[in-house]
Design a binder for these strands. Structure first.
Lengths: 200, 200, 200, 200
DNA sequence: AATGAATGAGCCTTCATTCAT
DNA sequence: CATGAATGAAGGCTCATTCAT
C-alpha cells in the first residue's frame, strides 16, 4: 500500500513543471503567465493563489531545476568508480544532456544573461547553483589527487580550471549547437588528471 | 574639402549607439523601442524609416559591437610582442573589460541566452563572433608553437582549451561578479604555453 | 463566573476593527479584502462566514464608527456646562480630532464621495450619521436660546448654520491640512451665540 | 469662413470630455480605462499615446473642470450688480448646479475624499481650486464692505464664513439630496451682508 | 525623411466572491 | 467554523509595428 504522499503531485508542482519547460525553452522573460495557465488549464487568479508573482515562480523553477540537474549529474557520475573518472564522466554527461535539451544550454546561465541585477532572487539561485557545481569539481579533484604529492593550491587550480572548461564547453556547445567544444574540454581535463605522473 | 565619411555620424548610427548601451545594460528583450527613441529624441516612425524592425536594429547592434569589442581586444594585445604573451594579455583584457562593464558580461552570450533559435539573424552574429574569437586563439597558438615539435592537433587542442577557459572565465566572472575565475584561467593557460619545454 | 459578553471581542469585531483602520486611511474602495484578512490573520473563506459581502463589512464599519465618533464628540462636550459652550467645544473637538487623524477627514463624507447611489446601504449610514449630528446642533441651540425671545425658526436657522460651518470647516481643514477654517467657523458660531443679546 | 481652430476638437480633448463624465458620475477610482476607451471608440494603446497614465488624465479632468466650473459660477454671478448680490447669487447657482448634476456633488471634494495623499498631483488641483474659490469670496466681501467702517479682519472672517457655509451646504445637499442646506446657508450669508448696518 | 496617432494583443497583477473540504 | 483553491473579469499599462500626413 503506497503512501499517499508518494504520488503527491499538487497543482502547485504541476504549474512549476509546466513553467519549467516553457522557461527553459523560450526563456523566462519571453514566457508569459498566460501561456503557463493555458497549458495548465487553470484561471489567471488560480496562478496567483499558488505564487505571489512571476518572479516567485521563477525562483521555484530554478530551485527545482537545481535539484533535478544535480540528480542527472550525480546519476551520470555514479557508474564511474574513481574520482578522476567521475570528472571525465561529467563531460560525457554534459554532451548527452545538451544534445537531449536541443542545445538550449544551461537554465541558470540563460537566466543570468537576462537578469542584470545580481542581487535579485533569481540570480541568487544562479550563483548558488554554480557555486555548488564548482564545489563538486573541487571535491572530485581533491579526492583524485589525495595520494599525490601536490599542493592544495594545485588541486584548487585544477578544479577551477576543470569547472571553467566545463562552463566554457557548455556555452559554446550551446552556441555552435555542436558538441565539439566538449571533446576539447574533456581532452584537456584528461591531461590535467594525468599530470600527477609528471611530478614523480 | 572634407571627406563625407569622415564626420559620418548619421542618425542611424546615433540610434545604434544609444540602443547598444541599453541592449547591453538591460538586455535586448528587456529594452523597448520607446526607450530608445526617447533617448534618441526621435519619433516612432522615424525609427522605422531607419530600421525595418527591432531585430534589424539588434543585428546592427551586434555587428557594431563585434567591431568595437575586437578593437578593444586587439588594442590590448598589441603591447605584447610574443604570441604567447598576447594570449595571456587576452585574459588581462578580459578582467579589465568585465570590471568596467560592471560585470554585465558578453553581449553575444547574453543575446544567445535569450535567443533560442540558432538560425535567427541575431544568433548568426553571435556564432560568427565566437567563431572569430576562437580563430584568434588558434592563430596566436599556432604562432606560439610554430618552432616547436608539436602536432597541428596539439595546437588546435590548446587553442580550443584556451578559448573555452576564456569563455568559462567570462561567464563565471559575470555570475560571481568577481574576477577570480579569470586568474584561474590565466594560470592554466600559462602552464599550457610553457608546455613546449617539456617536449624538447 | 464572568458574563460571556463582558470580554466579547469576537473575531467578527476584530475584523471590523482592522477594516476600520484601513477603510479610513485608504478609503473603502482602495482597500481590498485581501489586505484585511492578512492583517486579521484569517482565511478568505472565514471572512465570508462573518460577512456576506464587502459592502456588508462597510456598513458595519460605518455603524461602529458612528458610535465611536459620537462617543468622542460627547466626551468632548461633557466638560462644557452651558449648551452654548458645548457648541463651541464641538469645534475644538473638530480641530483636535482632525489633527490626530492626520487630516484624513470624515469617514462618512469620504464614503459619500465614492458612493454615488444615495440609496445604497452604506450611503444610508452616512445620511443617518449626519442627520443625527445636525440634530445634536439643534438640541444644543434650542437649549442655548430657550430663555431668549427668539422664534423656533431662528433656532433652526442658527443650528443649521452651525452645522454647515462645522461641515465646511471639516472638509476644508481636510483639504488644506490646516485647522484655520475651524478657527473661522468657531468665531462665526461664537458671534451667532451672542446674537441673543442684540435681540433684547 | 470659420477658422480651423475654432472647432478644434482633438481626440485628446474628446477623451477628457468622456472621462470627465465618467469620473464625475462614478468617481475616479471606480472608473476604469476600459470604460473610457470603449465610450471613446479607441484602442487601449491609443489612450496611452495621449496620456502617460490614468492619473495624468485625472489631472487633466480636474484642470478642465476647474475652468468649466468657474465659468458656470462667474456666468451666474454676472447678472448681479452689487458684490453682495453676487455672493448670494453664488448660493443660487449652487442649488441649480447640484440639482442639475443629480446631487453628485463637487468633483474636487469627491476626489479629495478618495485621495489621501495631499501632495499627489490630483490633490494639488483640489487645493488650488478651493483656494481660488475662497479667494473669490474674499474679493466679493471686500468689495461689499469697502465703504463700511469695518476692519480687514472682519472682512476676512465673513468671507471665510461664507466660503465654509458654501462648502458645508454643498456636501450636505449632496448627502441629503435636498437643497435645504443651501437655503439655510443663504439666509445666514444674507444676515452677514446686512451686518454693516449694525455697525453704523 | 520625419512625425506621432492608432492598433490590439499582450504584459503582470488584483478584484470580490464561491465552494468543496 | 475555518480553510484556501478556484474563478474570470477587470485593473493599469507596454509592446512592436503601421500608416496617413
Amino acid at each position: 500500500m503506497p503512501s499517499p504522499t508518494a504520488t503527491k503531485h499538487s497543482k502547485r508542482d504541476e504549474i512549476v513543471e509546466i513553467a519549467s519547460l516553457l522557461f527553459y525553452r523560450q526563456g523566462y522573460g519571453a514566457t508569459g503567465i498566460k501561456q503557463i495557465i493555458e497549458q495548465a488549464g487553470i484561471a489567471k487568479g488560480t496562478f496567483y493563489t499558488h505564487f505571489k508573482s512571476k518572479e516567485d515562480l521563477g525562483v521555484e523553477w530554478l530551485k527545482s531545476r537545481h535539484i533535478q540537474w544535480n540528480t542527472w549529474l550525480n546519476d551520470s557520475l555514479k557508474p564511474a568508480e574513481a574520482s578522476g573518472a567521475k570528472v571525465l564522466a561529467a563531460f560525457t554527461f554534459l554532451a548527452s544532456w545538451l544534445k537531449e535539451s536541443n542545445y538550449r544550454g544551461c537554465a541558470f546561465l540563460n537566466t543570468m544573461a537576462e537578469t542584470p541585477d545580481a542581487s535579485s532572487p533569481m540570480r541568487r539561485e544562479v550563483v548558488e547553483h554554480k557555486r555548488q557545481l564548482h564545489q563538486t569539481f573541487q571535491s572530485l579533484m581533491a579526492d583524485h589527487f589525495k595520494n599525490e604529492d601536490v599542493s592544495e593550491e594545485f588541486v584548487i587550480q585544477k578544479a577551477g580550471a576543470a569547472f571553467l572548461l566545463f562552463e566554457g564547453a557548455l556555452v559554446e556547445t550551446q552556441n555552435f549547437e555542436d558538441p565539439l567544444p566538449i571533446t576539447v574540454a574533456l581532452k584537456e581535463v584528461q591531461s590535467m588528471l594525468q599530470f600527477k605522473n609528471h611530478k614523480s
